[in-house]
């Protein structure tokens, strides 16, 4: 579906995106995870044909994107990081206009309903809250039922219930066989949604695997426990896969002296810090 070979690009004279290579399979959700300023939006702008001054090969549906024609976009839906909507028009007017640009169209009220905006269909976008705008912006990418979706930070700035709703629609789109590329700096969203995650830091691709493999390949799960010693609460950690060697823990268990015990797997953030030396937020 998407093939990137030796991609190089920079806005300035200093190198930024260098030697990037990856493949996105049809029907998967592929995530770019990285802190703000890492270059996630820039990569999406290259993949969607907005930036054409890159070096290397970027093939989307077997077309080199810098040489695309306008029919290229009939099958691609894009949701920018920032809303791109006519503020003076109502949400329905916006949707009617944008869907009129495509050959294939979806029912607009159904789309509005799916993100809970049907009751606001005749309100002007300028009167919308930030979250409402991002939801409208998101369904704007779906008006022509595209096979390939580019979503830039689709859940950023949304309250938990709306973020849930958005993620459900993304998963639903995947179930319909769509290929989805999304960017996020939220490790939970990446873990939950993505089939493959690419770690991006400073314009470089630092790791690429399934969220599960990324978590498992590094730092094994840990067990941490607490107990009383000389009137103070002490905390200790042991690796789950060598827990039998922890004599202290054995003793505490036999004497029923444990105050608390729980296991924790490393999060994508832990792995990200370990691999790139940078935190996600």
């Amino acid at each position: 579906m998407i093939e990137v070979n030796n991609l190089n690009f920079s806005y300035t004279k200093n190198p930024f995106i260098e030697d990037m290579n990856f493949i996105v399979q049809s029907g998967e959700i592929f995530g770019f995870l990285g802190p703000s300023g890492a270059g996630k939006s820039t990569i999406q702008k290259i993949l969607t044909g907005l930036i054409t001054t890159y070096k290397g090969n970027v093939k989307v549906n077997n077309i080199e994107v810098k040489r695309h024609d306008s029919s290229f976009y009939e099958n691609i839906g894009v949701d920018f990081e920032f809303p791109s909507l006519y503020e003076k028009l109502t949400s329905r007017e916006n949707m009617v206009f944008f869907s009129s640009l495509y050959k294939k169209r979806q029912d607009i009220d159904t789309l509005l309903e799916s993100v809970g905006l049907l009751k606001d269909a005749d309100k002007k976008v300028s009167d919308f809250s930030k979250g409402m705008k991002s939801r409208l912006n998101f369904i704007k990418a779906l008006v022509h039922d595209p096979q390939l979706l580019f979503l830039d930070e689709p859940t950023a700035g949304l309250d938990p219930s709306n973020s849930r709703r958005m993620k459900d629609i993304i998963l639903q789109q995947k179930a319909m066989g769509k290929t989805i590329l999304l960017t996020t700096h939220n490790m939970y969203d990446a873990t939950e949604l993505c089939d493959h995650v690419a770690f991006i830091a400073d314009g470089k691709l630092r790791a690429l695997d399934t969220p599960r493999n990324l978590i498992m390949s590094r730092g094994a799960a840990k067990v941490s426990y607490t107990y009383m010693c000389n009137g103070k609460e002490v905390r200790n950690e042991a690796l789950l896969n060598s827990i039998g060697n922890d004599n202290m823990l054995q003793k505490l268990m036999q004497e029923n002296k444990l105050l608390s015990i729980h296991s924790s797997e490393p999060t994508l953030n832990d792995i990200f810090v370990e691999l790139t030396g940078r935190a996600l937020q």
Partner: peptide, 13 residues
């Protein structure tokens, strides 16, 4: 309103 860059990724181009 970011319309210019959005229209660039539609069939308008």
């Amino acid at each position: 309103e970011n319309i210019a860059s959005f229209l660039a990724v539609t069939p308008v181009g």
